[in-house]
Design a protein around this nucleic acid. Structure first.
Length: 323
DNA sequence: AACAAAGACAACCGCGGGAAC
DNA sequence: GGTTCCCGCGGTTGTCTTTGT
């Protein structure tokens, strides 16, 4: 027995909202508020599902929303919070006045993910790709290591090919992420060159695994707080100068037992999976209470207002969640 | 100018939590 | 304690616009 549908699908309009519908919804809500979304479309004279009305209102019509581009500060906040919270868009959005979770999610998926990938940083774990690979290599038994390059390529090739084929990146940057520089003039990489490019990526990954110590020491993601030896456990504290992003997180979430981010490296793995479990456990340990689930964690209010400082963002950037 | 690909954004879907009964 | 219902969340899909060929 499944749940009953939230509305009669047959009698409901879908797709883009018209200005007339927007006006009807806005004026109804201005008069009666947003109580009981199920009844709102009926009373407002709209042939829409209540859910659709709620979405339209919260993501577009609400008067306190910003519609312009994201500022550098907002992007910085998103990246920083995402490195701690994963895909908890509503919590992240609560720290950005005038932005919705949908805004933040879309901006992340369309811009920030690529920006981080372009810097050689995995947007899921917020670690450099080369570091992830060497970290995996050190955890594998020797017989498995030779297969790692292939596996790593499977995980990262889309990101790397995006770089190689769509963006002009210099050989310096390629060296930074442990790859052999190749001719990467954007759009010059022809389709038939892809196989060769993949082979070069494999070779670069293999080299990074075999001899991580020879990687350039002047990595753009060098830790600025924790020492290099503890980098695996303190990846949240590094700067990526080219991007302007700075990971200024406290080492609280990771301190001690190495990396707290040892979640699956495979694409599609949710940032709210194992990694989040570990974060949740850590939060529970540190605060002597269960942070998992519950309204407080969901809306982030207690998280950001508590005495427990989770990161080094200026306090004024941690706004109270929007109501 | 025409077409295709990529990007950006809006909207939908299904699920889970929690309140009310 | 179980059921129903509403709401909010995150993932995904659809559509329009922009850019490249």
């Amino acid at each position: 027995m499944g749940r009953i549908p939230c509305c009669e699908k047959d009698n409901v309009k879908r797709g883009q909202w018209t200005p007339e519908e927007d006006h009807k919804l806005s004026s109804y809500i201005a008069q009666h508020g947003t109580r009981n979304w199920r009844l709102i479309p009926k009373h407002a004279g709209l042939q829409r599902c209540g859910k659709s009305c709620r979405l339209r209102w919260t993501n577009y019509l609400r008067p306190d929303l910003k519609h312009g581009q994201f500022s550098d500060a907002e992007e910085q906040t998103i990246v920083t919070l995402h490195s701690v919270l994963g895909n908890r868009w509503s919590v992240i959005a609560a720290q950005l006045p005038g932005r919705t979770d949908n805004d933040v999610k879309n901006h992340w998926n369309t811009k920030l993910k690529k920006k981080l990938s372009g810097m050689g940083i995995d947007p899921v774990t917020h670690k450099p790709f080369s570091h992830l690979i060497t970290e995996i290599a050190t955890t594998l038994a020797p017989p498995q290591v030779p297969h790692l390059a292939e596996a790593a390529l499977g995980c990262f090739k889309d990101e790397m090919l995006h770089l190689l084929t769509k963006k002009r990146i210099g050989s310096y940057q390629m060296q930074q992420i442990g790859l052999t520089p190749v001719n990467t003039a954007a759009t010059q990489v022809k389709h038939e060159d892809r196989d060769e490019t993949i082979e070069k990526i494999k070779y670069g990954i293999s080299r990074a695994i075999k001899d991580p110590e020879t990687s350039p020491t002047n990595k753009p993601w060098d830790p600025v707080v924790a020492g290099p030896a503890n980098f695996a456990g303190s990846c949240n504290a590094f700067a990526a100068p080219d991007s302007g992003f700075h990971y200024g997180l406290s080492s609280l979430v990771n301190e001690g037992n190495g990396s707290a981010w040892n979640q699956s490296m495979c694409p599609g793995s949710s940032a709210t999976g194992d990694r989040q479990c570990q974060l949740d456990e850590k939060l529970e340990d540190e605060n002597g209470q269960d942070w998992k689930g519950g309204k407080e964690m969901r809306d982030g209010a207690t998280l950001f207002n508590s005495d427990c400082v989770l990161w080094d963002l200026p306090s004024e950037e941690l706004m109270s969640p929007m109501v």
